Simulated assay, not measured.
Amino acid sequence: MTRKILLGALGALALTTAAPALAEGTLNVLTWEGYADPSFISKFEEESGCKVNATYVGSNDDFAPKLMSGGGVYDLITPSIDTTKLMIDLDFVEPLDTAKISEWNNIYKKFRDLDGIQKDGEYYGMPYVWGAIAFMYRDDAFTTPPTSIADLWNPALKGKVALWDDKSSIYVAARLNGDMDIYNLTDEQIAAAQKKLLEQKPLIRKYWATAGELVDLYKAGEVVISNTWAGYQSGLLKAEGIKVTEFIPKEGAEGWMDSWMVVKGTPNKECAYKFLNMQLSPLGQCGVANINGYSVTNPVSAKACMTPEQYKDLHQDDPAYLDSLMVWQPLGDRFEAYTNAWNAVKAQ
């Protein structure tokens, strides 16, 4: 199926499955764990009078199906930069009125300039948080620290390996094969990555879907090495007394950036823009940084609410760190090829 046909089919389905809008003053957000945590959302609700209901995703591939499922109308979503373009193309989201976002010009220019959140001169996404897809291991399981993606293919670790249940697993296997242009892989390179993942499958304990699932696997000692949302799961494990170490493998790591997007036609725009402004303020930026351990997009707010040590640890003063990462890119017409290859791995 071509991308044009896919967009048409999904768009038609969206029209037939849309559910009634929520009451005004209530925001229904489709987002990642931690992005609507009560530790900072409760204060926003008290101050704004806007109620926030959160539904969490475990993969960027969840956004389109959930928006079309008929289970409710979402007002705001936070897809990653490799998925924002698809949300725009599917006509799920509407242009932002950046004049209503007071901290807009304080967002790192690098993120505001990304093509994935723009179309026809308008912005559709508000950059929010960013980070790396690093790798992680339990300290007590290794005498020699792992340094390569190849360590996830080590037969001695059979049954102790986990990998994120996401099409980005194709990126991981491609780099192991030496195919470094991971967002522009040929059919042959995708097939080679799929083959590599099938070779790894007997070693896999679990393809993890949520932060909590991976944390539980490490806590139980069922998994000793995996990829990870850098800063998040490791922080949760260390709080539980489990010693783990994150590392960037010699084959490099992917980078990501998540953006808030306003779902087209939401009746709750007043609350939506209050929410967007809060998320770029010190309350929202340090709120998510303290919960998830991610870097944030507004260095002005970050400097106002972080200690100098936290600001440095999250690379807020180090744009070169971001440049060292393979930041996710929209896959365009290749989206299905990557997704189908990953689904085929799981199906076998």
Rank of each mutant, 00 (worst) to 15 (best):
L10C: 07
G11F: 09
G11E: 14
G11M: 12
A12C: 06
A12K: 10
A12F: 12
L13Y: 11
L13I: 12
A14W: 11
L15S: 12
T16R: 12
T16L: 15
T16D: 04
T16I: 14
A19S: 14
A21I: 03
A23Q: 14
G25D: 12
G25T: 09
T26P: 01
L27K: 01
L27G: 01
N28T: 08
N28D: 13
V29R: 00
L30E: 00
T31Y: 01
W32T: 05
W32Y: 11
W32S: 01
E33C: 01
Y35N: 05
Y35W: 05
A36K: 04
D37M: 01
D37I: 02
S39G: 00
S39A: 15
F40M: 04
I41S: 06
S42V: 07
K43N: 13
F44L: 04
F44T: 03
F44G: 01
E47S: 10
E47G: 00
E47C: 00
S48C: 04
G49A: 05
V52I: 15
V52T: 06
V52E: 07
V52N: 05
N53W: 07
N53T: 10
A54W: 03
A54F: 03
Y56W: 10
Y56R: 11
V57K: 00
V57H: 03
V57G: 02
S59R: 11
N60R: 02
D61T: 14
D61G: 08
D61W: 10
D61F: 10
D62W: 02
D62F: 03
F63G: 03
F63H: 06
F63A: 03
A64D: 13
A64Q: 14
P65V: 02
K66A: 06
K66F: 13
L67W: 06
M68W: 10
M68H: 12
S69E: 07
G71I: 06
G71H: 08
V73T: 14
Y74V: 05
Y74H: 13
T78R: 00
S80Q: 11
S80K: 05
S80W: 11
I81C: 13
D82H: 08
D82E: 14
T84F: 04
K85A: 14
K85R: 13
K85W: 06
L86W: 09
I88T: 10
I88D: 08
I88M: 14
D89P: 07
F92N: 10
F92S: 10
F92C: 07
V93N: 09
E94I: 01
E94H: 02
P95Q: 08
L96A: 06
L96C: 05
L96D: 06
D97W: 09
T98K: 15
K100G: 03
K100E: 11
K100T: 02
S102Y: 08
S102R: 13
E103Y: 15
N105R: 09
N106C: 02
I107K: 06
Y108F: 14
K109L: 13
K109W: 09
K110R: 15
K110N: 12
D113H: 05
D113G: 03
L114E: 13
L114F: 10
G116P: 00
G116M: 00
I117E: 04
I117R: 07
I117K: 00
Q118I: 02
Q118F: 02
K119M: 09
K119G: 04
D120I: 06
G121E: 05
G121Q: 05
E122Y: 12
E122S: 15
Y123C: 04
Y124A: 03
Y124M: 05
G125W: 08
P127Y: 06
Y128C: 01
